[in-house]
């Protein structure tokens, strides 16, 4: 049953690698302004779940709709509403941090006030001093910060995050929490996979657990 007001909806979604069922069929709906967290042991299929929801990996069964747009049938419209940050973001070798921001902003037609917004975000995340450097010179934490800034520089309705604070210091973790709270206040939604109980406890409206491919409601 399609929920037209939901920002993210998965119906009968499952994924199988060969004979190994990583995700058993499940249903999920994320409403506007809602933050959902997913927890589970290593190798339980959390990253696969995010890849399927982000339209980066074809599920074996089921459909994903983003803001009412099927993620494969109406890909451009769905991708305008969706942002995703992987746990280890990888960047183009030939482009500086600033050029990555410019590229993503232009691709999403988010040029209004770009310079001011980009400067502010980079300053907040402590990347202003390295904005003209190539990301391959960055530490893992700095790359994760740049991945988050790339998501925040463009408009979105639903944000998918994979371990958003795994490589961040305390100040950056607090900043991520503030940004997510602000986005929620503005009506955006978020689904995050995290091992950080504080982040999950402070922000999540609902929590799910993923173990052995089974997606169940509840924190643990």
């Amino acid at each position: 049953m399609e929920n037209e007001s939901a920002y993210l909806q998965a119906v009968n979604l499952s994924h199988t690698y060969g004979s190994n069922q990583v995700l058993a069929p499940f249903e999920l709906t994320v409403s506007p302004g809602e933050i959902v967290s997913v927890r589970g042991p290593n190798g339980s299929g959390k990253s696969t779940l995010l890849l399927c929801l982000a339209g980066l990996l074809r599920p074996s069964t089921g459909d994903v709709t983003v803001c009412g747009h099927d993620i494969y049938e109406d890909e451009p419209a769905a991708k305008r509403c969706l942002a995703f940050v992987p746990d280890v973001p990888r960047f183009y070798l030939e482009m500086t941090a600033w050029e990555h921001l410019r590229f993503v902003a232009l691709a999403h037609d988010a040029e209004d006030d770009f310079e001011t917004r980009a400067e502010a975000l980079l300053t907040e995340f402590g990347l202003a001093g390295v904005r003209d450097q190539f990301p391959h010179q960055f530490s893992r934490g700095m790359r994760l910060k740049l991945g988050l800034v790339l998501a925040f520089i463009r408009p979105f309705k639903i944000l998918l995050l994979d371990e958003p604070t795994s490589a961040l210091d305390a100040a950056a973790t607090k900043l991520v929490r503030e940004h997510l709270a602000a986005k929620r206040a503005a009506g955006a939604s978020c689904l995050m996979v995290t091992h950080d109980p504080e982040l999950s406890g402070a922000l999540a409206d609902r929590s799910f657990r993923l173990q052995d491919g089974l997606f169940t409601a509840g924190p643990e």
């Binding site: 991708k79 305008r80 183009y92």
Partner: peptide, 17 residues
Amino acid sequence: RSDLAHWWILRLLPFDS
């Protein structure tokens, strides 16, 4: 090939194939 190596950026762009 360079874009495929950055799949998470490429596939999230709001463009058709």
